[in-house]
Design a protein around this nucleic acid. Structure first.
Length: 300
DNA sequence: AGCGAGCCCTGCGCGC
DNA sequence: TGCGCGCAGGGCTCGC
């Protein structure tokens, strides 16, 4: 479940059960899901085993859970197809289960966390926590001002209370690149992926190749507003799911796919101007736009 | 600095 | 039925 709303849905699902829980057993079924863990599999297991978990935090698409009384956290990225599922001792998480954690919650009940990942682009890791530079909470979820080393380069996301829209605008307009590239640059603004980039660009009538240097401050403000709106709405609807691949911690799909205006709508008419929308190859992926209201920018 | 390509992977739906 | 192809919501590294 890759973009910000989907990851936040997962974080919220973990919120009621994770804080205060003790890890009683760690099972790594596929070591490839630890590719970002610096160290051997045993080291990951040993560090987690017996740890008490704190409130999960999220910045952009990264999720982490500080380990109580230590300067370390369990870091999780879902990649393209990762899921974090809650279950019981006898729950069947299927053949794509990569990591299994048995916990005892703070009220003493047993619970199992399954990390399921079809494509194994996602990962779990134990990583060191270091203070963020600005003194604000490091992410969404708790007041903790420490961030995992491997997440420190990720910019604050547009739903973060410490997100600085003016600073983003300045950095964006100073760049010599195209707007969709910039929206997907997680070191500039985080949490946005292919779906919500296409949605925000449609909402503001911008072509994905529009040069960032030509955007006015007010256009950037409009774009940031659109991004915040689409992420917030998607979150309220439980995220975007096209299939069983993208689900919350209970395996349920979100409803936002019904609200998409651009992504996946090639061949359908634009909800605004009724021209037929197109899908175009872009950066080994796809971009969706309306040829009527998102005109090709003049060449530089 | 920015960009394109390639890589990490599995599985689905499609056309032949 | 089977095969090959293109496709999929991410991120990182490399060489130019």
């Amino acid at each position: 479940m890759p973009e910000l709303p989907e990851v936040e849905v997962v974080r919220r699902g973990l919120e009621p059960v994770i804080p205060g829980a003790t890890v009683t057993r760690v099972e790594v079924l596929d070591a490839r899901s630890l590719k970002r863990h610096r160290g051997p599999v045993e080291d990951f297991c040993d560090q987690l085993q017996g740890s008490v978990l704190e409130m999960p935090l999220r910045r952009g698409k990264f999720l982490w859970v500080p380990l109580a009384g230590t300067p370390a956290a369990l870091v999780c990225h879902l990649g393209m197809s990762g899921q974090v599922l809650l279950g019981e001792e006898n729950s069947d998480f299927g053949t794509q289960l990569r990591i299994r954690l048995e916990l005892e919650t703070r009220d003493g009940s047993p619970i199992v966390v399954g990390f399921v990942d079809q494509r194994i682009f996602g990962s779990m890791a134990i990583d060191d926590l270091a203070p963020v530079g600005d003194g604000h909470p490091a992410g969404w979820g708790s007041a903790d001002t420490r961030i995992p080393r491997s997440v420190a380069h990720i910019a604050r996301d547009p739903l973060d209370t410490a997100f600085d829209g003016e600073a983003f605008s300045r950095r964006l307009r100073a760049k010599n690149t195209e707007i969709k590239r910039a929206l997907l640059d997680q070191t500039l603004i985080s949490g946005i992926g292919n779906i919500y980039a296409d949605e925000a660009l449609w909402a503001t009538r911008l072509h994905y190749r529009a040069p960032t240097a030509r955007l006015t401050p007010s256009k950037v403000r409009e774009l940031v507003d659109a991004v915040q709106q689409v992420l917030t709405k998607a979150l309220l609807e439980g995220g975007t799911s096209f299939d069983q691949q993208y689900v919350n911690v209970n395996g349920q799909s979100g409803y936002f796919s019904h609200s998409l205006n651009a992504y996946g709508r090639a061949g359908s008419s634009c909800p605004r101007c009724h021209r037929i929308m197109v899908r175009e190859p872009w950066m080994n992926r796809s971009s969706h736009r309306c040829p009527g209201c998102q005109r090709t920018p003049r060449s530089r």
